[in-house]
Design a binder for these strands. Structure first.
Lengths: 128, 128
DNA sequence: GCGCTGTATAAGCATTGACTTATAAAGGAG
DNA sequence: CTCCTTTATAAGTCAATGCTTATACAGCGC
């Protein structure tokens, strides 16, 4: 999940936002935009762009002496999927718990604590 | 976008995955799980859990001498939304470019270069 | 009470990472 | 060819961060 590593920086995130909004932007344009919000030098932005490139989040093509940057949606989509899946499992888990609660609410009796509970479930282990 | 800052660490991401899968897990359980994959001490995991807590990605409740951790879906959903929006703007931009290309392909004439082109469009300038 | 278990914090160290200034390299204009 | 523009890289500094060991603290069992 390299994308999430790369996304851990506000300047880089902002650069991506500008690329999403503006489509294709030259390195110089990105430097200018970054400097509107952060006090950051041209090399600093260039280094951020390198990180983004190496993470596959953007690609650059040379046009004359300019480097035109484009958002590369693949890794972003992957990160998004990771988050969605996390949420998916989570809500699934919630639902399971809910139905468990609803179903078990009456049958609940003689429920002890599980002393080695790593997964810690709900501590709803009852011995029949 | 604090969530994405917090997500920039593989150990923390793995902890979240385990919480998503397993529901509620005690600190000790999380330490054990983390140590299956990373060579990391108990305090290290505890510090990661602190970061996750402070970022609002998890919450902990005390049960006896245990701390039971739960995934907190809010910040994750927010991060997911950020990514989705980025992708949204991006594909919107792509569509716009596409229609622009389709519509303009014939009408193209006397198109001058914008010499300060930050947005740098396509640099498809040919002088008639 | 005493000691063990589970967890967090403190302090210190090492590494990473973001920034700076200075410079190089490459393309275009004159 | 020469100069200016654009971008990237090099080298060095500094702060942030992740780790470790040592320790504190709270709850439970005896």
């Amino acid at each position: 999940m390299t994308a999430l590593d790369v996304l851990g920086d506000p300047v880089r995130r902002r650069l991506l936002e500008h690329l999403a909004l503006g489509g294709e932007i030259s390195a110089g344009g990105l430097v200018a935009l970054a400097q509107e919000e952060f006090t950051v030098s041209q090399p600093a932005v260039s280094q951020h762009l390198r990180v983004l490139r190496e993470g596959g989040l953007v690609s650059a093509r040379a046009v004359g002496r300019r480097r035109i940057y484009t958002l590369e949606p693949g890794p972003l989509a992957e990160a998004e999927r990771w988050l969605a899946e996390l949420r998916g499992f989570w809500s699934q888990r919630l639902d399971a718990l809910e139905t468990e609660l609803a179903r078990g609410r009456r049958a609940r009796r003689t429920d002890d604590d599980n002393h080695e509970a790593d997964t810690a479930e709900d501590t709803t282990r009852r011995m029949a």
